[in-house]
Design a protein around this nucleic acid. Structure first.
Length: 513
RNA sequence: CAGGGCGUAGCUCAGUUUGGUAGAGCGUCUGGUUUGGGACCAGAAGGUCGCAAGUUCAAAUCUUGUCGCCCUGACCA
């Protein structure tokens, strides 16, 4: 058993932090609430970016970049928006430091105070809205379909690695359309992109739905979301897509001349996912031994661990491994190992995804190496020792179920490994689906729901006609919130769990991250 | 912001109740034996006990102040 990781049963929260630490995904920064994303973690983010970015471009979007700093006054232009974000904005107020009169340390130079403070973006609707108002004149300029990969800052009271940090990385898509219907179509299209991506890349099944009035994005007409279920029975919002209506176009005066020769405000959307996805991935899949990375975003798909005692054995094992590499990678790639640290050789298994196979030649004991790659969640380990060379086989160890099998060396090929990775992906998706389904209950009374929330957790599906007041009462009593109104509705009527009145709206309640 | 915990070697922590030479394990370095799931033996290096003030012959330990971090909650992607 892993000696540096608490078990999920012992302390789920500590387990989560231990897994991140053991896999070296992230570290705390000297600034409270901020996170250093280490190479192992960032490589996963890059894989997420690569896949998603392709999907954005596939659906006609282009990337651009808008600045970090936003005039403070911009935030105030949309009433709901300022309400939602004012409490967590970091401000830039000076442009220069100078020596303290006391001689010790520095202070903001008083004469460098900005006339208007600048907000470090918590999200970019305002500045992008401002630019769109300059760029859009006519229906011929529409739609505008822009995405940006950026960092944002929200001064949250309490932070948690990947799930909620003061600064985080994300992508935010911002589109402007001629008609309400087009904007709605775009909002749903991107929700679908997110849901498909979550399943395809992260093996994360999600529930698509809309947010209630009290949970929606400040400034949105409708917020759609994908909700995922974690192993401890808590829900996690994994992505959002907002139909912003004309709220921002009116606030920022984004007008165009329509086909009817009349001025009208554009219809906008925005949508985003963040590094929180890495948190979702960890909590959905990993086990008490550490991280488990879904194959399609795994920076390293297989680690080869040589086993030898003497120099002769090492030479023998090495040439055998070279043979395996030739079969897995082709002769060209197998001939150019890259050094990635003390004694670790790396090769591209897939040049388009930058996924690697590594050979761990470090001067360490085999057991240490096994734990090393296991805790980093690498899908497969290939163990190659003198006995295997003699038998013309190698030992394949699966991270997901920690099982192993003896593989005849002739079987190894690029296709063979791809199939293996695909199997793991399917198994992970299936496992996560089973968990989600098993953690989804239905309740017909409030008492029943409370019982489920306390004893089992997970999603509770029930009839409920959302209202800000009643949601608050339920939250105060149970800590549970309406995660979403699933798009998938039965259409039948039932008794509202809270008021007893008849309603046809079914919702999912859950405790959430 | 409230509640709880913590700050001592690179890391994890003991020592603080009852003041008296700065400790352990892990890691690191040296040598040797080892190596198919976290090795063993021998030796060595390594600390302004978060910071500041106070009490005292004497402070990691007591007092006051202060800074910071983690966990739980309110707030939120």
């Amino acid at each position: 058993m892993a000696k540096n990781i608490k078990t999920r049963a012992q302390d789920y929260s500590q387990w989560y932090l231990d897994v991140i630490k053991a896999a070296q995904l992230a570290d705390y920064s000297p600034v409270k609430g901020c996170m250093v994303i280490r190479p192992e973690g960032f490589a996963i983010w890059e894989a997420i970016q690569r896949d998603l970015d392709g999907r954005f471009k596939e659906t006609g979007h282009v990337n651009a970049y808008f600045p970090l700093l936003i005039p403070q006054s911009f935030l105030a232009k949309e009433a709901q928006h300022v309400e939602g974000f004012a409490m967590e904005c970091a401000l830039v107020t000076h442009t220069r430091l100078e020596k303290n009169p006391s001689g010790e340390g520095l202070r903001p130079a008083p004469d460098s105070a900005l006339e208007e403070a600048l907000v470090i973006r918590p999200t970019s609707e305002t500045i992008i809205g401002h630019m769109y108002s300059e760029w859009i004149q006519s229906y011929r300029d529409l739609p505008i379909l822009i995405n940006q990969w950026a960092n944002v800052m929200r001064w949250e009271m309490r932070t948690r690695l990947f799930l909620r940090t003061t600064e985080f990385l994300w992508q935010e898509g911002h589109t402007a359309h001629e008609t309400e219907a087009e904007a709605q179509e775009e909002t749903l299209r991107m929700l679908d992109v997110y849901a498909a991506f979550a399943e395809y890349a992260l093996a994360l099944p999600v529930v698509k739905g809309t947010k209630t009035e009290s949970e929606k994005f400040p400034g949105a007409v409708t917020t759609y979301c994908i909700e995922a279920m974690m192993q401890d029975g808590k829900a996690l919002q994994a992505g959002t897509s907002h139909n912003l209506g004309q709220n921002f176009s009116k606030a920022f005066d984004i007008k165009f001349l329509g086909r009817d020769q009349k001025q009208d405000h554009v219809w906008t959307t925005s949508w985003g996912v963040s590094t929180r996805l890495i948190g979702a991935m960890i909590m959905a899949h990993s086990d008490d031994e550490g991280l488990i990375v879904p194959p399609r975003v795994a920076p390293v798909v297989a680690a080869i661990v040589p086993i030898f005692k003497t120099d002769e054995e090492k030479a023998k094992v090495r040439s055998f491994i070279e043979k395996i590499l030739m079969q897995l990678l082709g002769s060209e790639e197998a001939a150019k190992p890259r050094r990635t640290g003390e004694g670790i050789e790396s090769f591209f298994f897939d040049k388009t995804t930058h996924q690697k196979i590594v050979v761990d030649w470090r001067d360490a004991r085999p057991g240490d190496k096994q734990y090393h790659w296991e805790q980093r969640g690498v899908p497969f380990r290939l163990e190659v020792g003198p006995r295997d060379v003699d038998g013309n086989v190698f030992v394949l160890k699966r991270r997901l179920d920690r099982g192993k099998e003896i593989v005849p060396v002739g079987d190894a090929s690029s296709t063979w490994l791809r199939t293996k990775l695909e199997d793991v992906h399917q198994a992970m998706l299936e496992k996560a689906r089973t968990l989600r389904d098993q953690m989804t209950s239905t309740a017909s009374t409030y008492d029943e729901m409370k019982k489920i929330l306390v004893e089992k957790g997970g999603f509770v599906r029930c009839y409920f006609n959302p209202s800000v007041a009643n949601e608050k009462k339920i939250k105060d009593e149970t800590k549970a919130t309406v995660r979403c109104i699933p798009l998938d509705q039965s259409g039948q009527a039932g008794k509202d769990i809270f008021t007893g009145e008849t309603t046809s709206t079914e919702v999912l309640f859950a405790l959430a991250y």
